[in-house]
Design a protein around this nucleic acid. Structure first.
Lengths: 203, 203
DNA sequence: GTCTATATACAGATAGAC
DNA sequence: GTCTATCTGTATATAGAC
């Protein structure tokens, strides 16, 4: 599996990629120079260009690497009622964001600033988001036809609302210092606030 | 009030400031060069340094200028019941964000990225936010003592929740293309979802 | 106050030795 | 593959004429 001439060829490439992914996520595209990456990865600038040709391509490769752990395993939804399933999805989403704070924060600020948004990366992220929302919408629709949720529910809109609230809590969490309540408490409150409204009994 | 030598001295300074504020908000600190600002404001680079010494100081001055319209007039709250007051505050917040989309979006991405955050600017913005949240918390607490809202309410936490949901809706709105529902519809849904829970009757 | 011309630094990128 | 040395562009900032 190794190269004939040099044993750690792949490792240098990997180290550049890891370092670049970290630095880009921490300081953004324009705030990160090839020289910085080279210094931090302990290689020469030229080597970075040897592997990645341009700064732009390095950036794209680094982002793609960052996306690798972006998978949410939705396993244990069976055996729960509709409300329980949605609650579990909310928890999974919060956990996911928590495990990827730095990169999620970075993607968010990337999209907000609107510059240097490789299309494929944006697509992956927003697809993940949409899958999640549709999952919730489907559960609501299913619960509706089973008579658990009322006809006043609008699956797509209610799912979007839950996601929005979730986003808000997590964004506030990013801004931490100034925003008092901790995420766990807020997530619990979110469930208590939004889910009862869906049930058929009241309204 | 004019200078003896040059009639439009102040206007050049103002033009630089306006232009810088716009460009910084559109492209960020690192993506905006003094040369760009000079070209867009139709003055020489040197003049910018004459007035503002360094790029950093120009940035700070531009941000301070951006903050000037950051005032929310809370006038017509009297004559409404508690729920009506909160609904009105939600509308005011949404209107405010809508009238300042570009700069709000910019401040958000600035805080998220964590770099180039002049302390005084951050303070102003987060103070505005806190005032708003406390206003809602006070209304909830007042409604509680008047018996309109139930004892299960937690004024600070419920206010934070409302603000979080509001944030989420508005952030989703920034990301527009990928996120289906329009802000007005979501705001209406937000009121319908969160406020009934506060009332004493149910629960 | 406003300009042109310039100093200085560092960015991205290339050439070529090993 | 990995390096040193260098090219070229552009950034912030300054000097000095008007």
């Amino acid at each position: 599996m190794g190269n004939p001439e040099s044993g750690d060829a792949v490792e240098a490439r990997e180290k550049i990629l890891e370092t670049a992914a970290r630095l880009f996520a921490e300081h953004g595209y324009e705030n990160t120079s090839i020289s910085q990456v080279a210094r931090a990865a302990q290689v020469s600038k030229a080597l970075i260009f040897w592997y990645f040709d341009t700064k732009e391509k390095l950036y794209r490769s680094a982002l793609r690497k960052t996306l690798e752990p972006y998978i949410i395993a939705i396993d244990d939804l069976d055996g729960r009622d509709e409300q329980g399933q949605i609650e579990r999805l909310i928890e999974l989403f919060a956990e996911f964001v928590n495990e990827n704070v730095y990169s999620v924060r970075f993607f968010l600020s990337m999209v907000l600033q609107g510059e240097h948004q490789p299309d494929d990366v944006i697509r992956r992220v927003s697809e993940l988001y949409r899958v999640f929302r549709n999952l919730i919408a489907d559960i609501i629709a299913g619960g509706q036809s089973r008579g658990v949720f009322g006809q006043h529910c609008n699956p797509q809109l209610d799912a979007a609302m839950i996601m929005a609230a979730l986003d808000g809590v997590l964004v506030q969490n990013f801004l931490s210092t100034e925003f008092v309540h901790d995420a766990g408490e807020m997530i619990a409150h979110l469930k208590a606030s939004l889910l009862p409204r869906l049930l058929r009994a009241d309204h």
